[in-house]
Design a protein around this nucleic acid. Structure first.
Lengths: 215, 215
DNA sequence: GTCTATATCATGATAGAC
DNA sequence: GTCTATCATGATATAGAC
């Protein structure tokens, strides 16, 4: 069928784009590189995606939508399991963190693209990002409020933001860590990474608020 | 004197480059934009910095060297003050975090350039980054080991890395936060930001290591 | 739907007058 | 040291044959 052929080219381009945008960023990756890697014609990008900007947007939403959907699925399961009780804090955080590494399995540039797009999103992505994350951020804040009623909501918001920063930064820097640690750290297994991040964030989320220090 | 004139042009270019690299990244900022903003001739970049890559490297080292120097100064003061005792954990973290925001005062793109360069450094920056951070990372790990003898050094290394991620991510996203929080969060004052981050990281650094869960 | 060929423009860098 | 003018290259996007 024709649609199958179309879908193949479409996907080949998206796969190549994912890897090259992750490696070189929006401005750094050229359509020539992408179409060469995808082994399709240069014009295929414009035919299937119209512009480079739209190609980038689709490349990113293709990874972020299933990720956020999976997060909400696991969080909802945990809420059903907890019944009237709040979901335990580590379970909330793990529902956010674990899917990141699960969906990244076998896609070496998945995490790099995520991190890059959050830390330095091309300007045309601002609206798209806000749309993709508006719902999920509210869901998580509510779950956190139930789990930690003693912490002010605004504080929870900040801390969740810090946690996302820690997650993305680490995700994109496994090699850097090996470098700075002089070989003490080599890319550990996924379960260790998840456990470490959940432990870190769980402790951090319920930090006491320090009183302003005297001089 | 001629050297004064040279230094003026030199600095005008660096200032313009700092702001434009922060906003658009290495590939996104063009030499024409930079020289236009600096109100100097296009060729001045090549004359003073040879290539665009060297201009970027100088732009970044100009902000990172005083920053890391200030961090070490404050940490050393704290160590002298502590004598034979370990420096308290919050003091260690604050010596790392505070200079970031102090040196950023009055330079709106300082933090954005920092964040961007760490999350998506141009490939030619890898060596330079490693050189600039090798010494300071070892100094901080040692201080953390003294303050938290019960936490394995490798765990400390990871957690410090998470903390840097939280710091940089937040630094570059004050506007994003205001957006996602639906106006609940508006750029707070520097002291609040520092306190919040230090509280968060202090609790996280001494997190207990959770036992692997049973199924 | 896919290709070749090309239009149009912006890029980094350089040559050479002053 | 600073300018103008320009080069060679590579960018995105499009027109039109097949």
């Amino acid at each position: 069928m024709k649609s199958i052929v179309k879908d193949l080219t479409h996907e080949r381009i998206l796969n190549a784009a994912e890897s090259l945008f992750a490696l070189h960023g929006y401005d750094g990756a050229t359509m020539r590189q992408i179409t060469e890697k995808a082994a399709v014609n240069l014009s295929a990008v414009n035919y299937h995606f119209d512009t480079k900007e739209k190609l980038y947007a689709e490349t990113f939403t293709r990874i972020i939508r299933p990720l956020n959907a999976e997060r909400l699925t696991i969080l909802t399961q945990a809420e059903l399991l907890a019944g009237d009780h709040p979901v335990p804090l580590p379970a909330i955080l793990e529902s956010f963190i674990r899917p990141t590494f699960m969906l990244a399995a076998g896609r070496p540039q998945f995490l790099a693209l995520m991190s890059r797009n959050f830390s330095a999103p091309p300007p045309f992505m601002r609206e798209i990002m806000a749309a993709e994350f508006s719902a999920i951020s509210q869901r998580y804040i509510r779950a956190l409020q139930h789990a930690l009623p003693g912490v002010p909501p605004m504080e929870l918001f900040w801390r969740m933001f810090y946690t996302v920063g820690a997650l993305l930064f680490t995700a994109a820097h496994r090699e850097t860590m090996a470098l700075l640690s002089h070989g003490a750290i080599q890319s550990p297994d996924t379960e260790s990474i998840i456990r470490r991040l959940v432990d870190y964030a769980s402790a951090a989320m319920c930090a006491p608020r320090r009183e302003p220090a005297m001089s």
